[in-house]
């Protein structure tokens, strides 16, 4: 086995391919409509998709250990609705405190999900399906049966999304900080690598002294934390809180991960890939009107894109396998 040059490794990697796709998409849309090619349009796009982008990181961890979490948008609604109501009825005023409360609620939700999955061995899809119902209903109960917390009720909290630091919206700073932390966490820390180890071979991880149950508990808790953060972001970006917000949005988050090359069976996926995946998901709704495609087509195009990405992936793999076989001398 020869050592691959770093150069070849870079160009052969999935992340590189995704980067090319992002640049191509960017170039095509900009060529058709130069309005797309601006700093503001990019930051707007990120801001509007902050929730998906941030939560994709948590989903990355969950999917790395071979799990899935479809309860996240219910967690988001519960935590977002909770601070919405607290602000509306003036129990709290401080923006930071609101964020902390939302994240605490999210973390607790995620912790419970993790407990059920790691301690009671409930398959993740079933457990999170149950919690999807439970948290959504709790969010609804918190809202006194469907009340909204509109922009006027949110006081200074909604300013978070419009405040800028060094020319960038606070929301974008949150995204950047999350991605930087996760990039280092996943690649350079022992705990980060343990997540990969558990997803790659849980049995082996157990033998080498990794507490698989605790790692699973941790990833779902992290997912919950990010869902809580997502709840606060959602409320501030859209300046409103309602109990049915982001219903079905978990599929967008999963799709971002899948497009970003995260494997459903665990062990494979990177933070960079997830970033590109989330970016591609974010560009679609933004690019369609610029390309004069009716917004009604948005979902169909999204779905087709996911399908095409996974199919192309399989076909490329098959071609590679075939070539490898042809190359074997006999």
């Amino acid at each position: 086995m020869k050592k691959k040059s770093a150069f070849r490794k870079l160009f052969g990697s999935r992340e590189f391919l995704l980067a090319v796709i992002v640049v191509l998409m960017f170039a095509i849309v900009s060529a058709v409509n130069p309005a797309f090619f601006s700093f503001k349009s990019v930051t707007d796009m990120m801001k509007n998709n902050a929730v998906t982008m941030v939560m994709a990181l948590g989903m990355l961890c969950v999917m790395l250990v071979g799990g899935i979490d479809i309860s996240i948008m219910s967690t988001l609604a519960l935590s977002g609705m909770s601070i919405g109501m607290l602000l509306k009825y003036e129990h709290i005023h401080n923006t930071l405190l609101a964020f902390v409360i939302a994240m605490a609620i999210g973390t607790l939700c995620g912790f419970l999900v993790g407990l059920v999955i790691s301690r009671a061995d409930v398959p993740p899809i079933i457990a999170t399906m149950g919690f999807m119902y439970i948290y959504r209903a709790m969010g609804y109960l918190v809202s006194h049966g469907g009340e909204w917390a509109g922009a006027s009720a949110l006081g200074t909290f909604k300013n978070f999304a419009t405040t800028k630091i060094l020319g960038l919206s606070c929301v974008i700073w949150v995204i950047i900080v999350c991605y930087v932390i996760f990039f280092f966490f996943m690649k350079w820390t022992r705990t980060g690598r343990k997540i990969y180890a558990v997803g790659s071979n849980a049995e082996a991880a157990e033998v080498s002294g990794i507490n698989v149950r605790n790692i699973k508990l941790m990833v779902f808790t992290v997912m919950g934390f990010l869902a809580g953060l997502g709840g606060a972001l959602q409320v501030s970006v859209y300046a409103s809180a309602m109990p049915d917000m982001q219903q079905g949005g978990e599929m967008d988050v999963i799709a971002a991960c899948v497009i970003g090359g995260v494997s459903m069976s665990g062990g494979r996926g990177t933070v960079i890939g997830t970033l590109f995946g989330a970016f591609i998901m974010a560009m679609i709704p933004k690019a369609l009107p610029l390309l004069r495609i009716d917004a009604l087509w948005q979902n169909t195009i999204k779905g087709v894109l996911i399908l095409v990405v996974v199919l192309v992936n399989v076909i490329l793999q098959r071609v590679a396998d075939r070539n490898a076989l042809k190359g074997r001398e006999m």
């Binding site: 899935i68 599929m251 899948v258 169909t300 087709v304 996911i306 996974v310």
Partner: peptide, 10 residues
Amino acid sequence: MIVTLSTQII
């Protein structure tokens, strides 16, 4: 899961 997720959206 992936295939039916995409066809769900489609």
